[in-house]
Amino acid sequence: MMASYGSIGAMLSKIFFPRIPFVLTIQEGDREWEKNKFWWRRILSKADFVTTISSFLLVEVRKAGYAGKAEIIHNGVDLEKYGTPGKSKSGKTIVSISRRVYKNGLDVLERAFDIVKKKFPEAELKIISDAKHEDVPRYLSEADIFVRPSRSEGLGTAFLEAMAAGLPIIATPVGGIPDFLKDRETGLFTKVDDPEDLAEKIEMLFNDEKLREKLIINGRKLVEEKYQWPKIVRDMERVFDSLL
């Protein structure tokens, strides 16, 4: 059995060894398939089973013409790394653990922070673009709010990690984010490419302790119920077993 994230090599192996089941996992958040539609469709055509990390990506797989077996199996979070969150913190440190690429919208966050800073001069913004994964829990523990105003997103595992760490999150309603973010329930939505709206949402969390508490409790509960690695492993085992 071959499990692949979409490599052409896996597709070629399937051509030469057609009896070996081929499970294709789609995690793409950069919309690369729009630039490489030919290879995207060719790879999909050879898959015996496709898993995607969000409902958004499953829709894209179907749009590309794949009619075979497919299922959403999200990425997971190791809750043990984050402990048990306490009450919301009253500080004003914003963190975004995000690569400096266009899709992550960090330029929008920086412009929004300039607006926030005028009303809250004590506020801080930390953009961590080169974090080692083992350092992520520490960066999150030092912050009060997690923000990433994405322009596209396959799922957004960084948001799930922030929720596990007990931070309220602000995100855009793009890609796979609506799978886990329900506005004013597990996080706050902000408009895409709108620094004024983002600044308003940040200030809302600064000023509303009850809302922060609600988002923290609901966010952590959601991760505990749906995004722990043991559940993800069981789901993948079931997929593999179905093809053997």
Rank of each mutant, 00 (worst) to 15 (best):
M2N: 03
S4Q: 00
S4N: 02
Y5C: 02
Y5E: 00
A10R: 05
M11C: 10
L12Y: 04
S13T: 07
I15R: 15
F17R: 14
F17G: 04
P18R: 05
R19F: 11
P21K: 13
I26Y: 04
E28Y: 04
E34R: 15
N36I: 11
R41P: 13
K46Y: 11
D48W: 02
D48K: 04
V50M: 10
T52R: 01
I53N: 13
S55G: 12
S55F: 01
A64S: 14
Y66E: 11
G68H: 05
I72E: 11
N75M: 09
G76Y: 09
D78E: 14
L79H: 00
K81I: 02
Y82D: 06
Y82R: 12
G83C: 03
G86M: 08
K92M: 09
I94N: 09
R100N: 12
N104K: 15
L106K: 05
D107T: 06
V108P: 08
K117W: 08
K118T: 12
K118Y: 02
K119H: 06
K119A: 03
E124F: 03
L125E: 10
S129M: 02
H133V: 07
E134G: 09
D135Q: 15
D135T: 12
Y139D: 09
Y139Q: 13
S141A: 14
E142Y: 03
F146R: 11
V147W: 06
T157P: 00
A158N: 11
F159S: 07
M163A: 03
A165V: 07
L167M: 13
P168I: 01
I170Y: 13
A171H: 10
G175N: 09
D179T: 00
L181Y: 09
D183P: 05
T190F: 02
K191Y: 06
K191A: 10
V192Y: 01
D193M: 14
D194C: 13
P195K: 09
P195Q: 05
E196M: 10
D197K: 03
D197H: 14
L198E: 10
A199K: 10
E200N: 13
K201T: 06
I202V: 14
E203P: 00
E209G: 00
E209I: 04
E209T: 11
L211G: 06
E213K: 12
E213Y: 01
L215K: 07
L215C: 08
I216H: 08
I217H: 09
G219E: 08
V223H: 01
E225L: 08
I232R: 12
V239C: 07
L243F: 05
L244S: 14
